[in-house]
Design a protein around this nucleic acid. Structure first.
Ligand SMILES: [Mn+2]
Ligand SMILES: [Mn+2]
Ligand SMILES: [Mn+2]
Ligand SMILES: [Mn+2]
Lengths: 228, 228
DNA sequence: ATAATTTTTTAGACAAGTCTAAAAAATATT
DNA sequence: AATATTTTTTAGACTTGTCTAAAAAATTAT
C-alpha cells in the first residue's frame, strides 16, 4: 500500500511549488490548466512555466501537451499533496505553539514545507495530535495522503434564517484575515442570516449573538457548514 | 544595541553554509582559513570556494586577500552565529518534542537552519524555554548572539583519579554518537579516571558507577568539565 | 473565411553555483 | 638558488531557473 514514506524523489523547491500551483488550479478548474494561469499564480512568466512544465513532464509528474495545458499524474498529485500536508502541519504548529496569528503563518510555512524528512513530518503530525484542519480551516492530508473532503457552502449563498457555522476562508490573504480578526469573526462561530440587502448584496448576520453586517466581498470568501 | 532582529540581509543557503564553515574553521585555527579547507568542509572544490569567497567579499561579509585565506567580518560573523543559533535550537526541538535521537538531528537541522523568520526563531527559542545547550552539548547563541564559552577539557588529557562530568562531544558523527549510546555514555554522566594504559592510551573509567574501558579515539572526542 | 487579438512556445540571454583543466603563486626539497 | 611539489586562482563550461523579444498557434471578432 502506498504511503508517503515510499517517496524518495528529490525535487527542488521550485519544482514543488509548481506541483502545488498546478494542483490547486486544477482543483478549482477541474481541467488541464494553462501555462498563463500557472505563471500568474507563481508570479513568474509563461515562458518560464513552459520550460519547467517540460522538465516535470520528463519526470512524469505532469501530463503536458503543447498548447493544451497541464495536469498532474498520480505521482505528481501525491507529491503535491505531500507538500500541502507539510505546509498545513507547520501552520498549525506556528499558531498553536509559537504564538503566530493565522495571518502570519503562510510566508513561513512556504519555507518550511520544503524541508525533507519523513520522520520530521510524521513526528510533527504526532506532536500536534494529528490535526484534521489547519488554522484557515483547510483539511490536512494524513500520511497516506487522504484528507477530509469538506462539504463547502459559500456564506453568500445562504438564504434568510438559515443557520450555519463558519468553517473556513476562501481568501487567506493577510488583509482579509486581519479584517476578520477586527470584526471578531472566527472559525467555529455559529451564524444566522437575518437579512439580505438586495441593493448591494450585503448580509446582516447574527454571529454568536452579535448583529453584524458584512459586504458581499466578505460573505463570498467565507465557507460555512449548514446545521442539520 | 545590536540584535539579530536588525539583520535583514537575505543570503542564499549556499552563502549561509559558507559563512558557517568559515566560522567554525576559524574558531579552531584562529587564523585566516584556506580555500582548500573550506572546500573540504563543504564537500566542494577549491575553485568553487574562490568564486564564492569573492562574492562574500563584495558583500563585506568576509575579508579575503588572494592566496592569503579568508576570515569573517563582524557582520559575517554575526550572520554565521545566527545560523548556528537556528541550527542548534531546531536540534533541541527535534530531540525534545519529536522523538529524534541525537544522532538523527543534524541532517534535518541543516535544512531548518535556513528558514528565514525572526519571529519563528525567537518563538522557537521561547517555546523551548531558552535552552543554553543543544543535544550535543554545544552552546546556543541567544538573540543578541551571545553564548556561553565553555571551559573545555578533552577527556583524554585527564590524569588518574581526576573526576569530571561529560559535557559535550567533539565528533558528532552519527557513528560516534551511536557508539556512545550503545556504551551507555551520556552527557551529564559523572566520570572518574581509574587507569590509563600506556601501551595504547586507552582509559579505564568509572561512569556513573560502571567500570568501562575506552580507546584513545573515544576519549579524545569527549569534552568534560572538571569537578571543583 | 479572413483578419485581429490573445495565448503559448521558442530562441537567446543572464545569474547563481558548481565543475575540470590549465596557469600562476606559494611552499618545500635538494 | 634552483627545482619540484603543493596550493590557489583563472578560464571556460555546464545546470537550474529565470527573463525578454519574437515566432507560432489558437481563439475571437468582423
Ligand atoms: Mn498557507
Ligand atoms: Mn493554511
Ligand atoms: Mn548539528
Ligand atoms: Mn549540534
Amino acid at each position: 500500500m502506498f504511503t508517503f514514506d515510499s517517496m524518495e524523489i528529490d525535487l527542488s523547491q521550485a519544482e514543488e511549488n509548481y506541483l502545488k500551483a498546478i494542483y490547486s488550479l486544477f482543483v478549482v478548474a477541474n481541467k488541464a490548466v494553462s501555462t498563463n494561469k500557472i505563471a500568474e499564480k507563481l508570479n513568474t512568466k509563461a515562458s518560464s512555466v513552459t520550460d519547467m512544465v517540460k522538465k516535470l513532464s520528463e519526470k512524469e509528474l505532469v501530463n503536458y501537451v503543447k498548447y493544451q495545458g497541464v495536469s498532474l499524474t498520480t505521482e505528481g498529485k501525491n507529491l503535491a499533496v505531500h507538500v500541502i500536508r507539510k505546509h498545513r502541519l507547520w501552520e498549525v504548529f506556528l499558531v498553536r505553539h509559537l504564538g503566530f496569528k493565522w495571518d502570519e503563518v503562510h510566508e513561513v510555512a512556504e519555507q518550511l514545507e520544503h524541508v525533507k524528512s519523513v520522520k520530521l513530518t510524521n513526528g510533527l503530525d504526532a506532536f500536534l495530535d494529528f490535526p484534521k484542519y489547519d488554522p484557515h480551516g483547510d483539511p490536512i492530508p494524513d500520511k497516506e495522503g487522504n484528507f477530509i473532503k469538506r462539504n463547502i457552502t459559500i456564506l453568500s449563498s445562504l438564504k434568510i434564517n438559515e443557520e450555519s457555522k463558519i468553517v473556513g476562508v476562501k481568501d487567506s490573504s493577510s488583509a482579509f484575515l486581519k479584517y476578520l480578526d477586527n470584526a471578531d469573526i472566527k472559525l467555529g462561530a455559529e451564524i444566522k442570516v437575518i437579512h439580505k440587502e438586495n441593493f448591494d448584496n450585503s448580509m446582516m448576520l447574527l454571529i454568536e449573538g452579535q448583529k453584524i453586517s458584512i459586504s458581499q466581498q466578505i460573505s463570498s470568501n467565507l465557507y460555512v457548514k449548514q446545521n442539520d
